[in-house]
Design a protein around this nucleic acid. Structure first.
Lengths: 292, 292
DNA sequence: GTTCCGCATGAATCGATAG
DNA sequence: ACTATCGATTCATGCGGAA
């Protein structure tokens, strides 16, 4: 199957109207923050941010599949010594639109922007707001499991053969919990705190979105051949990652330079994707034989 | 000078009325979250949480000095698959009361509560909301500077009690450029993300709060002989730390068992504090000699 | 005296079952 | 229908006893 990438040049509110209902599995985006990046986007005043975003989120609600997910990367800026409240107001208004505010992930930026202020430390985190259309949505948790902490490293690793048999017998005789689950356990599920460094900014776009961020959510909320949308694609990080992971992708941006840059970038990827796809189902049996 | 600890038994909203205006330098508290801890506290329904808290925050606004700070530890729970919005509503309402919402620190709980669900990962962070009365407030940033190297981090972890106080003296101000240069090279300012594990409850009292948490904010926002208030003291972690750090403290709790427990705990501390106080400025030179 | 291992225990959350 | 209770799930941490 062929992987497609569609690009739209123009305002998201208008361009999104071209997309059909219920056609997107995952939306990952980092919109311009209020009054930030004035040079490229013109800047939206904090007081008008919610009113500016709501028509767009209404379109996103329409194009998202009922089982899909919307990840919104955002952080309020400081205005006159106070944190702005427009993000909180946005969440409240989006819920009135019909969105479910399912979760708030924290992106801990390990190398945050430097600086020193007399009444404030460096800001080292951003919000990753998860919205859904319904309580039941697709989530592939096993795809993002991480290596365990000290516990398994120091203890489970040392289990010898005889110990494993003994533990297995406990399961058979009804003792304890499901030990067999723990024997092959070297990984644990992650939490809702993501530790990622910001990308070394060799790109022109001012949004420092590390590739690991969309990659993590694409793994978690989509499968191959699903469709990922970024209505503020900027330098196209989300789309690049989606293509590499064999997901269809849709990108929108109002800046012609970004549109053209992403179009050029994606050309070699598209050629690569014309090769016949390899299905995991066909490969797995062979791999298992090889392991033996 | 003598360090005092005042305890009040009863509802915070009422007990706070006994405190004079502009008398507290720092408020650090972790109120019962909505519908949590029903066994000990009544349990406040999420829909009524804001209305329940606002009269208390009004009193806190009155007793806090204009240059003081209010740190509120809180986290919304999940209700029917969605994050509750009462924390956001509380922030918005407290601003109408006259509070400035200056900053939101993140407490990353390394050992979060375990569990697995089809649509959600473990919750590993809580909010530490900073409120102030005015844009100009006391902040002693140098007190919480962190060592650059990992070696010091692990060493500090094993320090306890009096050792931590002594260690703080190294960062004490009042010396010339030599010290500040040394500080600049070996220490860095922290960010607004705090990494602390929750205290394990094998001790006699279970604290929702690791001691490092109030300690960090007490260092950051108060000096010796200042006054720290915790209107929901629980097992009294904040007060214990404040006493150890030679700050006056005021604690309130509605549960008689907690009140009595804290009263018993603080007795030995108070006796210790009757000794003539040791000023850091007097001690430091000797220690420097010893180091050589 | 170290190191190692067993174990209990958390500001949790979901889904099923019971009134 | 709507609420209250319960079992199952999960993993970092510190304590205490054992090698």
């Amino acid at each position: 199957m062929e992987i497609k990438t569609d690009l739209y040049l123009g305002d998201s509110k208008e361009q999104l109207k071209q997309l059909p209902d219920n056609s997107v599995d995952l939306i990952v985006t980092s919109p311009p923050y209020a009054d930030q990046r004035k040079s490229t986007y013109g800047g939206v005043h904090p007081d008008r941010y919610v009113a500016w975003f709501l028509p767009i989120s209404a379109q996103l609600l329409r194009v998202l599949k009922p089982t899909g997910t919307f990840i919104l990367n955002i952080k309020e800026k400081v205005v006159e010594g106070e944190r702005s409240t427009y993000v909180m107001e946005l969440i409240i208004e989006m819920r009135k639109q019909g969105w479910l505010w399912t979760e708030e992930f924290i992106w801990h930026k390990k190398n945050s922007y430097p600086g020193k202020w007399p009444n404030r430390f460096r800001d080292a985190w951003e919000r990753l707001l998860q919205f859904n259309r319904q309580k039941q949505f697709n989530m592939y948790q096993e795809e993002v499991m991480i290596p365990m902490g000290d516990w398994a490293k120091t203890r489970l690793k040392n289990l010898s053969g005889i110990d494993k048999i003994r533990d297995a017998s406990k399961v058979g005789s009804g003792f304890g919990k499901n030990i067999s689950n723990w024997l092959d356990r070297d990984k644990a599920y992650p939490t809702n705190v993501l530790h990622l460094a910001t990308e070394c900014s060799n790109k022109n776009h001012s949004a420092a979105f590390p590739e690991e961020l969309p990659e993590w959510f694409i793994k978690l909320f989509t499968q191959e051949n699903d469709t990922v949308l970024d209505p503020f694609m900027g330098s196209g990080t989300t789309l690049t990652v989606a293509s590499r992971m064999k997901r269809n992708s849709i990108g929108i941006d109002v800046v012609p330079e970004y549109y053209e840059m992403v179009r050029q970038q994606l050309k070699p990827v598209e050629l690569y994707l014309l090769e016949p796809p390899i299905r995991y189902e066909e490969v797995s049996p062979q791999r298992r034989i090889a392991v033996r």
